[in-house]
Computed example of a mutant assay.
Amino acid sequence: MTSVATAPSASTTASAPAVEAAGVHVHLGASHILRGVDLTVARGEVVALLGANGSGKSTLVRTLVGVIPPSAGTVRVLGHPLGNTVPWGDVGYVPQRVSAATTVPSTAAEVVASGLLHGRRLRLPRGWRARVHHALELVGLADRAHDATSRLSGGQQQRVLIARALVREPELLVLDEPVAGVDRPSQEAFAATMARLVDEGLTVLVVLHELGELAPLVTRCVVLRHGRVVHDGAPPRPHGGHDAVGHEHVHPHEPAHLTGEHGLASGPIPGAVPGAPGTEARP
């Protein structure tokens, strides 16, 4: 059974780690995906979550942001037990391989603005246009604000979704392979943006296949294998040939209903914690 904790005081949450997971297990159907994961991310850290395909990286981050409920163990986010008490407005989340283009026509600015809707907030706050412009500016797409997302490249759509997370001005940013399939200029622009935000105190938990352009920012690496943490510390050395020119990575992914491959959710994800990032309706 997942243990339930009472809501902590404001002074306690301010000094608490950004993420605390203890003994987390996750079952999806008959599969036992996570097997007793312990993870702590301190405020201001940039932690990279690494591991082979199927190791449980994406399942772990989706559990930490309330998309998948843990079968056992405890999770605290920004000092609050996982649930409605978490200040989800202070958490930015970019899921894996999500497209910003949907069957509903939307501009880049509209997609980014949807990041300001969470929990019971059904109307955009005052000053939302300036915040949207600033978020798009951070990812180098301010000049494409009024373009339909369907007209943007895959790399540009991914940057729009990153801006959608950043528009909240979050304390914690959780990203699931944010640069997968993104061209080198977009990777460099993303790394430069992250460097500025980390300097301002942003806490980042990011799933990566390899450190790449983000290597200088990463303070710690956590490696999963078969749903267990097998390394927590300095970045591991790559295996021979892993980073060689011409080396290709194959990424078998979990079913689309778990990854959200087919676009932004038009409503809450089944089983998700209400108000969790990435589960709100679009404007």
Rank of each mutant, 00 (worst) to 15 (best):
M1A: 11
T2D: 01
S3Y: 08
T6C: 02
T6V: 03
A7W: 04
P8K: 09
S11V: 15
A14R: 15
S15D: 12
A16F: 11
A22E: 10
A22Q: 12
G23C: 04
V24T: 04
V26A: 11
A30F: 03
H32L: 04
T40I: 07
L50R: 06
L50Q: 08
G51V: 07
N53E: 05
N53D: 09
N53S: 14
N53G: 04
G54S: 03
K57T: 08
L60G: 06
R62T: 05
R62Q: 14
T63D: 01
I68E: 06
P70Y: 07
T74F: 01
V77Q: 06
V77L: 11
H80M: 03
L82R: 07
L82K: 08
G83I: 13
T85N: 02
D90T: 10
V91N: 06
Y93R: 02
Y93Q: 00
P95R: 11
A101I: 01
A101E: 08
T102V: 07
V104D: 05
S106G: 09
T107R: 14
E110F: 06
E110A: 11
A113M: 03
L122Q: 12
R123M: 00
R123S: 09
L124D: 08
R131Y: 08
V132I: 09
H134D: 10
A135V: 05
A135L: 11
L136S: 11
L138F: 07
D143F: 03
T149D: 12
T149Q: 08
R159E: 02
V160H: 13
L166V: 05
L166Q: 12
P170E: 13
E171F: 06
G181V: 10
D183L: 00
Q187N: 06
E188G: 01
M194I: 13
A195E: 14
A195D: 15
A195T: 14
A195K: 14
R196E: 12
L197C: 07
D199C: 00
E200D: 12
L202P: 03
V204F: 04
L205N: 14
H209Q: 14
H209I: 01
L214Q: 13
L217I: 02
C221A: 09
C221E: 14
V223T: 15
R225D: 15
H226W: 00
R228A: 05
H231Q: 09
D232G: 01
R237I: 03
H239L: 07
G240W: 12
G240T: 15
H242K: 05
D243S: 04
G246F: 10
H247R: 06
H249D: 12
V250E: 10
H251M: 10
A256I: 12
L258S: 06
T259D: 09
H262D: 06
L264R: 11
A265G: 14
G267V: 06
G267P: 04
P268I: 08
P270Q: 09
P270T: 13
G271R: 09
V273C: 05
R282T: 14
